[in-house]
Nucleic acid binder design. Structure first.
Lengths: 192, 192
DNA sequence: ATTCGATCCTAGCAGTGCTAGACATGAGAG
DNA sequence: CTCTCATGTCTAGCACTGCTAGGATCGAAT
């Protein structure tokens, strides 16, 4: 039995290596550079090994996305916990969100731009995704205001941040004005 | 001379055909299905002909994007012109924008999601893109409110709509709640 | 009628995601 | 301690991608 346990452990270890390497490669050179060949070469195995862990490239992207969701939730919670008052917390949330997107563009792409084969906004949505949304909701529920539910408000606030994040990263918005954009969003959307 | 004129005319006609076919194919089966081979086959020429008109696939996407920008500007202007009062105009703008994105997903992708090799938010930005932004600004300038410039306000409002549009299309937001989302955005962001 | 240049196509390159089938390695039975 | 056999891995290959070099063909101008 201990032989099988060791093998299972090594397999899990190799799977972590695949995900970490894919993420690293994507952050360094973009997702287009993450080819099965290059990825296989970096982990020092042949390509078919990848397919014994994941159904295909899409699932690897999905694995990176789940990892990113967990980290983003933690980043948002850490930022909001360190702020005093609802208004300051919303500011902190917005900055933490955009900061995460800017610092981990490949992970952000895996989460919200690419197809990682994950279900969003449904019952079978993976836990890390639900938790990331919950992290936003915990803070934004405080400033929802009247006439709308916290869920809907969180979705809209999130969508706005997402728009700023993606348009900025694809050079459709100039990054210099990010700060006043955040201020405008928080001032107008949040009800304190 | 008239021979050369005819040839130039035919060339321009074929270029229009390429762009129209690419757009059609993209709307029908997504941009991934727009391969140079398939595109060439549909226009009944060989692949190299495409490269005598465009530097590559990227430029074809760019051409579709420019076409889309012109149409979107027209759609927004038509919708806002038919509405009475600033508030109704902003509503009409938001609906027209999201409606355009939902009805022309491939064109929307070419404009704001894919890389068409176009410059945004700069001096050498193509006229259709500037004009599409201008169409938004004409309406949103009315409801900018105090403390921010109309340009910045338009950017933020646009980004919010973009976030809703893209997250909805990629099934990260459920399409059922689009209407209350628009209402929330307009009610909170626009100052009437 | 004949040159000659513009135009277009065939064929091919290097790369992609993915997979079938050969091969080796090592655990368990005798 | 040897042999069998399953597990795990790799080589080689498929059908596809964007893109291009070089040859063939066609038609305008002499």
């Amino acid at each position: 039995m201990s032989v099988q346990e060791r093998k299972a452990r090594e397999r899990a270890e190799r799977e972590r290596l695949i995900v970490a390497t894919a993420r690293e490669l994507a952050e360094q050179q973009g997702w287009d550079a993450v080819t099965t060949r290059r990825l296989a070469e970096r982990i020092e195995y042949s390509q078919p090994v990848l397919y014994s862990h994941f159904r295909g490239k899409r699932e690897i992207i999905g694995a990176v996305a789940l990892q990113g969701a967990t980290e983003m939730a933690a980043a948002v919670r850490a930022a909001t916990a360190a702020a005093d008052g609802p208004r300051a917390r919303v500011y902190a949330l917005a900055r933490a969100y955009l900061d995460f997107a800017a610092r981990n563009p490949a992970v952000y792409d895996a989460l919200f731009q690419l197809d990682g084969g994950l279900a969003y906004a449904q019952e079978d949505t993976p836990e890390p995704l639900k938790d990331a949304f919950a992290a936003l909701l915990e803070c934004l529920g405080e400033v929802t205001g009247d006439g709308v539910g916290p869920g809907l408000f969180t979705e809209v606030f999130w969508a706005s941040l997402h728009g700023v994040a993606t348009l900025t990263r694809s050079r459709r918005l100039l990054p210099e004005d990010t700060e006043p954009r955040v201020k405008l969003l928080v001032d107008r959307l949040a009800v304190v």
